[in-house]
Amino acid sequence: MSIGNSPEDDRPSDDRLDRPDRVADGPDHAADAIPADETRTGEQQAAERPSIGRVLQQARVAAGQTVDEVSSSTRVRIPIVHAIEQDDFTRCGGDVYARGHIRTLARAVGLDPAPLIAQYDEGHGGRPPAPTPAAPLFEAERIRSEPRRPNWTAAMVAAIVAVIGFVGFTAFSGDDGDDGSKAVAEGSTPASTKPAEKPKPTKPADPKPDPSDSAIAGVPRDKVTVKVDAADGRSWISAKDHSGRTLFDGVLEQGQDKTFQDKQKIDLVLGDAGAINLYVNGKPVENEFEPGTVERLTYTKGDPQAG
């Protein structure tokens, strides 16, 4: 009988030899068993998707258009086009205007705007609630009927008729005087004859101001006055004074209008500029805004002209 382990105990068993190999091979086989696509999360897949600005820029280049050409065709200012192509939407003035600019630029370069709008909503918390109707506070700002002004047109017509009548009367009187002088000459030869004096031309009446000028004169010169008229359809508008205080934020139905005044400037945002007629400091502002376009305008006492 011997003390200690037998030689057979010192030999490694099959289990001991196989186990390290299985352990070593186990992690590799487990990693191979998981498909690589399943390890990617939805956030990673979204991160690999091209950004809105990148898609618009590539589509513009593929269409052979420059930023200036896109800006001219869409009426979106050049700095805003550059900012959107760099995925900077802060210059758009809010989510509503950002969506409108994205939609306009996508159509200009031949893209479907719906996927880009959906991608924008995913990154900016979805679509905002519909604009609330105008608060009763602004009902007091409805344009008041202007006081009746003198009818300068009728006054001008009356003055012209008076001048014509006076000239005609003077001409007939001069003819009668010539006949009398001829009668005297036939009866006796005067020592000296004086030619009949011609009537002195009367000073024309001072021209009356044009009706449009008189209407402009009724507008306060120390303030800027802007009238917004939804003549061709309903439109959402926003108006602010020089300090940034909101004067109006709501929808004008077709046929409605609003008038705003400030001592320095009025900032406007028109949701559908093609449906709006503008009057600044009493003068109509001619525009070529297309229906559905969003416009941001600023007017001062020296206008009408877009800021």
Rank of each mutant, 00 (worst) to 15 (best):
R127W: 15
G125V: 02
T132F: 07
G125N: 05
Q119W: 02
R127F: 12
D112G: 03
A114L: 00
I117M: 08
A130G: 09
E122H: 11
R144P: 12
P133Y: 03
P129Y: 06
P115M: 00
I143M: 07
D121T: 00
E122T: 01
L137R: 10
G126R: 04
L111G: 08
I117K: 04
A130Y: 04
R142W: 09
Q119V: 01
A140D: 07
P131E: 09
H124K: 04
L137A: 09
R127K: 14
L116A: 12
E141Q: 11
P136W: 15
P129G: 04
A134P: 15
I117S: 02
P129W: 07
P136Q: 13
G126Y: 03
A118P: 00
E139V: 12
I143H: 09
L137N: 08
G125S: 07
Y120S: 02
A130D: 05
A134F: 12
L111M: 13
R127I: 13
A114H: 03
A140L: 09
D112Y: 07
D112P: 07
P129Q: 05
P133C: 00
H124L: 05
P115F: 01
I143W: 08
Y120F: 13
L116F: 05
A130I: 13
A118S: 06
R144F: 09
Q119F: 03
R127M: 13
R144K: 10
D112M: 06
R144H: 10
Q119A: 14
Q119I: 00
R144G: 14
L116D: 10
A130W: 03
T132E: 04
F138T: 06
I117D: 09
I117G: 02
L116E: 07
A140P: 15
Q119K: 05
P131G: 08
A134M: 10
P115C: 04
P133I: 00
Y120G: 05
R127H: 15
P129T: 06
A135V: 15
R144N: 11
I143F: 09
A118M: 01
H124F: 12
L116Y: 06
P128Y: 08
E141K: 08
A114G: 08
D121E: 10
H124G: 06
G123H: 10
Y120I: 01
H124S: 07
I143P: 15
L111P: 11
A134T: 14
E139R: 13
P136I: 06
A130R: 14
P115N: 03
G125M: 02
A118T: 01
Q119G: 10
R127D: 13
D121Y: 11
P129M: 05
A134R: 06
G123P: 05
P128V: 12
P136A: 10
A134L: 12
L116P: 06
E122V: 03
F138H: 02
A130E: 08
H124Q: 05
D112T: 10
Y120P: 05
E139I: 13
R127G: 14
R127V: 13
P136D: 15
A140W: 06
P115E: 02
G123Q: 11
P131W: 15
P129K: 12
L111I: 09
A135S: 12
I143Y: 04
F138P: 00
L111Y: 05
F138W: 03
A114F: 00
I117C: 04
A130M: 05
A134V: 14
A140M: 13
E139Y: 11
G125K: 08
D112A: 09
E141H: 12
Y120A: 02
P113V: 03
G125C: 01
D112L: 02
A118K: 01
A130P: 08
L137D: 10
E139N: 10
R142H: 11
